[in-house]
Structure formats: structure tokens, C-alpha cells
Write a protein that binds this DNA or RNA. Structure first.
Lengths: 194, 194
DNA sequence: TTGATTCTACCTACCGATAGGTAGATAATA
DNA sequence: TATTATCTACCTATCGGTAGGTAGAATCAA
């Protein structure tokens, strides 16, 4: 008797965000449009502006969305060993690449950085710092667990992993294959194991 | 008496290419326009189409231009040791980042890959393979010269260096500093030294 | 319970700006 | 005179964004 109205499985706004992320990851920020998303949803572009007042709005929502997903998946790993965490984390990006050679939204927006509103630039930097800090913390955990080489340079290693992921995603797209990325990240972790 | 007409120091076409590369590296492929370049040159957009019939034309020229510069600088290094080559090569990208946090044209076009004509996609792959092969060859040279660790995985190391460069450039832009990239590439080379 | 009101989520129709690109005239040069 | 390099003027398509309207669901008051 209560809850007569069944809520839609996914709202238009949520679907729009999904499509937005898809097009951001495949086409880049400047090559995807409200029109593209609206067409895919079967609604009018103006209706999309009801949910996202501006492209900046949508862009900020996409970053927030991706960040929330990242934080959630990191949260899920909190009881794992450092090595397990690192492996799972890299697997996220391998799957991303396997899925139509998509790129990390952060990497895409880094390329489009200079064409994006200042507020988005700030969010990007904040998010990047979160990723960096998580990696450093996880590497520290690995040192404590004695699963990583004890003379590891934490900052360097964290940056190298982040760069390898972003660069590897680019290379996977150009080559049209994700295997190299998977091998690279796998070996990279093996190299820091003691 | 011969050569009455002094050739312009740089032709309009060459200047357009320089500006095109500049905007490609700072804004991405889809955010720079003929208008932008024409304005900067002080000519009309239509006049630019005299030199480059289409944006694809300009894009192909930019790739060819960058490739030529790459090959030339590689040619200049041909008598150096492997370690010197690697150091000089990474320095090219460090300077790129120092110069207004520019990205590698290849990395930019990898992000815009799906929005770019097939002919450009092919050239990108070709060029990428050239870079990869050069790195592998140089690493082999390093093995012969006994300056690199003898158990080095050549393909992995070459890919890692390429990825670290592309990813590092992205990170440098988001962070607004190039120091990390320089440190990263320096340490990466140190790590493969024996 | 009914009627008025407000809210949600869409619509049509349009705006100015800019994109890539073309036709054809014109000026300067060899 | 033929070629090169530029111009003016225009095209169509699309961009992000807005104005104003509407059907239907939800909320609130009598």
C-alpha cells in the first residue's frame, strides 16, 4: 500500500551521466555534446539542460561521479593486503581499456585541461591528489607488510604507477589492444615486490 | 644579383604548422581551429585553406612534421651511447612540459583518436611503432654496451618508458609543474642502469 | 474528497557564435 | 601571362544555451 509509485530503475539523469562518461572516455570533452547524449536517450537537448544547466555542470557531475565510484571501490578494498589492493586497482584500468579502449576520465580531462572551466580544473587536481595519496598510503602499507622492496622510493613509485596507467591507456588505444597495458602493470607490480 | 628576392625567413605555411602544433599541444585536436591559427597569422581563414585544404590535411601535416623532427633529433644522436640517447630523448619531453605544460602531439591525438580520420589514425600507429622500435633498439645497444641491467625485459621497459612519458606529461599539466616528470624519467633510467 | 497549486520532466522553437569548407575576385610575383 | 597567395563573401551544420509552454504527478487546503 505504501510505495505505490515504482521508481524507475535508473533515472534519466543517471542515464545521462552514464552516457556522458562513455562519450567523455571515448571522444574527449570537446567532441561530445548535449545533442549526442539527448539523441541516445531519446529526449531533446533542451530537456537535458533541465538536468544539467550547463556543460560545466555536466562536467563537474562526471568528475564527482567518477570520484565517488573510485572512492567506493577503494573503500571495498580497505581490509586487503597492499599487494591485493594494487592488483585490484590496476585491474580497474585494464577493464577500462578492454571496454572499447576507453581512457580514464581524468586522463582525458588532463588533455582538455586548458579548454575546461577553472572549477573543473580544480576538481581534477583534487581528485588526482586523492589517487596519489591512496597509492602512497598503500605502498607504505606494503612496506609495513614486508611485501614490497624496502628501499622503495614511495613518491616516485606512486607517480610511476599513475603515469604508467595513463600512458598505457593511451598506447592501448593507438595500438588497438589492451594486452600490453595488462602486462605492463602486472610486471610493474612484480618489480616492486621483494 | 641572383637571388634578388629574399626568401621569407619562415613561410606562412611553416608558421601555420608551428601554430598548429602549438594549439594541438595546448588545446587538443577538437579545440583548435583554422580561425585561431589564421587570426594569429593575421590572415583570413580562407587563406589558410589555400595551404591546407582540410583539417585532416593539416592534421596529417602536423604528424609528418613532428615525425620529421623526431627522426632528425634521433639521427643526431646516432653516435652516442645508449644511456646518453635515453637521457637526451627524455629531455625532449621534459622541455616540452616546461614549455607551457605542453603535451606530446601523439598523446593528444591518442585521446582524440576516435574523432580523427582513419588516415591520421594509421599515421599515429606507424609513428608510435617507430618510437617503440627506436627505444627497443637503444635498449639493446645499452645491453651490448653493458650499461643496462642484463636481465632487462626489452619490450616491457620500452613500453614503460613510453607510457611514463605520456602519463607524466598529463600529470605535469594537472599539477602545474614539470619537476615530477623530470624526476620520474631520471629515476626510471637510473633504475634500469646496472 | 475535491479543487487549486506547485513541481517534474519533458517539449518546440529559437538565439548568437563558431565550426569546417567553398567560390570567385584580386593583388603581387616570376 | 601564369602562378601564388591572399581576399571577400558566403554556405551548411553544429555548438552551448534560453524562452516559453505543457502534460501529468504530487502536495496542500477547504
Amino acid at each position: 500500500m505504501n510505495k505505490v509509485k515504482q521508481a524507475p530503475l535508473t533515472t534519466t539523469k543517471a542515464q545521462a551521466l552514464d552516457l556522458g562518461r562513455h562519450y567523455l572516455q571515448t571522444l574527449g570533452y570537446n567532441a561530445f555534446s548535449f545533442q549526442l547524449i539527448a539523441d541516445e536517450l531519446g529526449i531533446k537537448k533542451a530537456s537535458l539542460h533541465y538536468h544539467f544547466a550547463s556543460k560545466e555542470d555536466l562536467g563537474l557531475a562526471l568528475i564527482a561521479d567518477y570520484e565517488a565510484a573510485y572512492i567506493e571501490s577503494v573503500e571495498k578494498m580497505k581490509d586487503l593486503s597492499a599487494l591485493q589492493k594494487l592488483t585490484r586497482m590496476t585491474r580497474i584500468f585494464c577493464r577500462m581499456s578492454q571496454d572499447q579502449k576507453k581512457l580514464c576520465p581524468l586522463g582525458v580531462l588532463a588533455v582538455d585541461f586548458n579548454t575546461v572551466p577553472a572549477k573543473m580544473q580544480k576538481r581534477l587536481l583534487d581528485f588526482h591528489k586523492i589517487q596519489q595519496n591512496w597509492l602512497i598510503t598503500t605502498l607504505k602499507q606494503g612496506l609495513k607488510e614486508k611485501s614490497l622492496k624496502k628501499d622503495l622510493d614511495l613518491n616516485f613509485t606512486a607517480d610511476l604507477i599513475l603515469a604508467a596507467i595513463q600512458g598505457g591507456l593511451l598506447m592501448a588505444r593507438v595500438r588497438g589492444e589492451s594486452a600490453t597495458l595488462e602486462n605492463m602493470l602486472e610486471k610493474l607490480i612484480k618489480d616492486i615486490k621483494r
